[in-house]
């Protein structure tokens, strides 16, 4: 294949990575931005989304599209509910202290991972794609479902942006993000906001997983990579900046796709990690983050 079509293929692969990463990292960014909690268990919420999607695909009869649509609604709800319970049972009791919550979310990570191993088993399991078609370009054919993933992620992220910038719930979240005490002093139930944000962050990771699992398969150890890449994305974009997270996700996703296609996936991870190191030295607050006042 010539260089041009090969580059186009790499960019298309990168867009799929970017779309999934943007969804996953925006959940992590929301949780850190509003709650100041570094959620080390975020990758496990991603894994749970994929594993639950497999269960739905196995136990819901009928066409793959039906079980997939059900999984896309049900899995984020179940994972969000689990996250809200974790918030209530653990994080709230630690008064959201930054250091304590890091340790606590490491504990949640292992609990979720081992629970998945016990109930789901150690094997990778496939989930059928809801649609099966190929887009035939002059140089190569491309799996149509991957383009569906990009479009679906773009729609979900647009909806998230509308909720955050236009709705009453978004206004409450932004006020809480700016000043937790003042939000309380104006009648906002901050505990409820935190539970909702933690659930929303986990649900976004689960949604990303449901979208990508027909491409990658479900496995109980699959949370590690999304967690690492999400942290890289959030640090480069600026901690707590959703706009920065989205832009960083596109850059990292495209870089990941291009470097993986032309060279090797491992080199793509090395490039991303070096980029984080560089950003931390040159601009510690990230591309779109702000320095502490």
């Amino acid at each position: 294949m010539d260089f041009g079509p090969f580059l186009l293929l790499a960019v298309m692969e990168g867009l799929v990575s970017a779309a999934v990463l943007a969804l996953t990292a925006s959940g992590l960014s929301l949780v850190f931005g509003i709650m100041r909690v570094v959620n080390v268990a975020h990758g496990e919420f991603f894994m749970l989304g994929a594993v639950l999607a497999w269960f739905v695909s196995q136990f819901v009869p009928g066409p793959a599209a039906l079980s997939f649509a059900l999984a896309l609604i049900l899995c984020p709800l179940v994972v969000g509910l689990l996250a809200a319970i974790a918030d209530w049972a653990v994080l709230k009791r630690l008064n959201y202290e930054p250091e304590a919550t890091i340790v606590a979310t490491i504990g949640i990570l292992y609990i979720l991972q081992q629970a998945a191993l016990s109930l789901f088993g150690p094997d990778a399991r496939p989930v059928p794609a809801p649609v099966d078609f190929r887009v035939q370009l002059p140089w190569f054919g491309y799996a149509g479902y991957k383009l569906v993933v990009v479009a679906a992620a773009a729609m979900i992220l647009t909806l998230l942006w509308v909720v955050l910038s236009r709705s009453r719930a978004g206004l409450i979240m932004r006020a809480t993000q700016e000043d937790r005490d003042m939000a309380r002093a104006f009648g906002i139930n901050v505990d409820r906001v935190y539970a909702g944000v933690f659930a929303l962050g986990a649900a976004l990771a689960a949604m990303a997983a449901v979208l990508v699992v027909p491409i990658t398969q479900a496995h109980y150890l699959m949370g590690g990579d999304p967690l690492l890449l999400s942290f890289i994305t959030v640090i480069i974009g600026g901690l707590g900046s959703l706009r920065g997270t989205l832009i960083a996700a596109i850059v990292i996703g495209l870089t990941d796709g291009i470097v993986s296609t032309f060279f090797a996936p491992t080199l793509a991870r090395i490039v991303a990690t070096l980029a984080v190191a560089l950003i931390l030295v040159v601009r510690p607050q990230g591309l779109f983050g702000r320095t502490a006042p």
Partner: peptide, 19 residues
């Protein structure tokens, strides 16, 4: 003062009005 600095004047008032 501790206003919600990134929010607009109207949004700051809305926060107060929510209850």
């Amino acid at each position: 003062r501790r206003l919600f600095g990134d929010l607009s004047v109207a949004q700051n008032l809305t926060i107060g009005l929510m209850a």
